[in-house]
């Protein structure tokens, strides 16, 4: 295959040696019918849905906060962020706890499928528009048999403004 390999932060070699068989591990999850993936190194843990405490006047994509073993972390409904139709949580709903630029944040997803070992050269650069998402935070699209997996760049998921909203505003 002669596709350009995607520049992964932890896999710099993949860029230089495009076409080599670099194995990367991804956590895949679903939102509606689409399948997404995150670099496993960005994922701290995956939890079942718990009761979320709403935070008054928080930005609308912030669902609230939860207690993560004594630490209070914010929860983002990724459906709201991606402007997808909202969905009631089910028994499959999961919270993926990720580290974004040093902050611990929980993401609500419909379900978590599996941990995938995938050859980096099967990942293609993102097409201009995928599932009505902006493409900045899409790292690429992985092809696996007949499945199409959208690889997200978690660090780019929030705009600077959104980060500032989540982050401290104390003087």
């Amino acid at each position: 295959m002669e596709q350009e390999a995607v520049n992964l932060p932890k896999d710099k070699k993949a860029d230089e040696n495009a076409g080599t068989n670099e194995i990367i591990q991804l956590v895949t999850f679903t939102l509606g019918s689409e399948e997404f993936a995150l670099d496993i190194l960005k994922v701290q843990e995956i939890n079942r849905m718990v009761e979320i405490t709403k935070v008054p006047k928080a930005p609308n994509f912030v669902e609230g906060v939860i207690n993560l073993r004594g630490k209070v972390i914010p929860i983002v409904d990724i459906r709201k962020k991606f402007h997808l139709n909202l969905k009631e949580s089910t028994k499959d709903t999961r919270i993926i706890v990720v580290n974004i630029l040093g902050k611990t944040i929980g993401l609500i997803v419909d379900s978590v499928s599996e941990v995938l070992r995938i050859n980096s050269n099967t990942i293609q650069p993102p097409p201009p528009l995928v599932a009505s998402l902006d493409s900045d935070y899409i790292k690429g699209v992985g092809k696996l048999d007949d499945r199409l997996i959208i690889l997200l760049d978690i660090d780019k998921i929030f705009t600077t403004g959104e980060h500032n909203l989540i982050e401290s505003t104390i003087k």
Binding site: V65, G70, I166, E167
Partner: peptide, 18 residues
Amino acid sequence: KSLGDYQFGYKGISGATI
């Protein structure tokens, strides 16, 4: 528990507890 990094730009909440 300090909300520390996560204030959501609103001052009416000083912290959280479990």
